[in-house]
């Protein structure tokens, strides 16, 4: 160990002496290893994004060459009621489902944390829906169980409730079923919370107990502050994730976003504009708006974090 340490400082010294050749060699190796990633970044991510910025100002149907229309797509966005509706639906989905999902995840993580017997089993069972929740198969299932004669209404019937709504085909409840689906996948943030709780030194709680702090006080003064970076992390991630919800709404509504556009997520509308109507110019403009919204929300999150996220240095 010490020999290696010695040699390491030696090699660093020699490295400094002929810095030019050794450093150049290292740099060449680094860029060779990074080459696929750089090609991907330029060719598949950043390059096409810049191209789409241009396309956003054109009329383009994939067959004829893009036709410059200036700010037309932007003015169309300003006066497109379906776009406004899709933004409203998506915001409602994010604002309702993300906090509920995270609160459930945090509550269960705290219930599971305290050396509970069978913890790995519970953790696995609760996590399973997170893996399956994004699939078409589960969306198919949701379509049935929240259908007019689906499982939920069967069970409600057993309880004597006969006039339950038709959930997925009722505009006032359709979005709610998708929110339930998102909350159902609380397992992934829960696992992250569990890992975070594991990091909090037990000695803090012991000290608090000696001082006679109540459970509630321990939660407020120890658990939440020390967990706040993880809560923040989950919040940022889940908001970005929820903004991209697509599959569930697409399958449940057969791609229409119905009933009466009540499940018309932003991405679903983007899909219809781009890949049903092939209005690539307008779709590109919408994609950029999505990027700006997600970036703005993330920036807002980071700004707000200063006031509630606690970093223990």
């Amino acid at each position: 160990m010490t020999v290696i340490d010695e040699l390491r400082t030696l090699s660093e010294k020699t490295g400094r002496r002929d810095k030019s050749s050794a450093a150049a060699k290292e740099e060449r190796a680094a860029y060779l290893l990074l080459l696929p990633w750089i090609i991907g970044l330029v060719g598949v991510t950043a390059g096409p994004m810049l191209v789409s910025l241009y396309i956003a100002f054109t009329d383009y149907n994939l067959i004829q060459a893009p036709h410059w229309t200036g700010l037309h797509n932007i003015s169309r966005m300003l006066s497109d009621p379906r776009l406004h509706n899709s933004l409203r639906v998506t915001f409602e989905y994010v604002v309702v489902s993300v906090p509920i999902q995270l609160i459930v995840a945090l509550a269960l993580a705290m219930l599971l944390d305290k050396g509970l017997r069978g913890l790995p089993l519970y953790r696995s069972v609760y996590y399973l829906p997170s893996l399956l929740g994004g699939s078409v198969a589960v969306a198919v299932l949701w379509r049935q169980i929240f259908g007019d004669h689906g499982l939920v209404n069967q069970l409600l019937g057993h309880l004597g409730i006969e006039n339950a709504p038709a959930w997925v085909s009722d505009p006032s409840t359709a979005l709610g079923t998708l929110i339930v689906l998102n909350v159902w996948t609380f397992g992934a943030p829960m696992v992250i919370f569990l890992a975070g709780l594991r990091q909090i030194p037990a000695i803090y709680y012991e000290a608090a107990k000696v001082d006679g702090a109540s459970k509630w006080r321990q939660l407020r003064s120890i658990t939440l502050p020390l967990l706040s970076p993880i809560i923040f992390f989950n919040l940022v991630l889940q908001i970005i994730h929820a903004f991209q919800a697509f599959t569930q709404a697409f399958v449940v509504s057969s791609g229409t976003g119905g009933p009466s556009d009540s499940t018309m997520f932003y991405t679903l509308y983007l899909y219809q504009v781009g890949f049903n109507n092939f209005q690539m110019g307008y779709a590109a403009a919408m994609a950029w708006l999505l990027l700006l919204i997600v970036a703005a929300l993330t920036a807002l999150n980071f700004y707000a974090a200063r006031f509630w996220v606690f970093y223990d240095n």
């Binding site: 396309i55 994939l62 983007l270």
Partner: peptide, 9 residues
């Protein structure tokens, strides 16, 4: 979804 339109093109 931000890159999907240009990638598709």
């Amino acid at each position: 979804h931000v890159v999907i339109v240009p990638q598709y093109i």
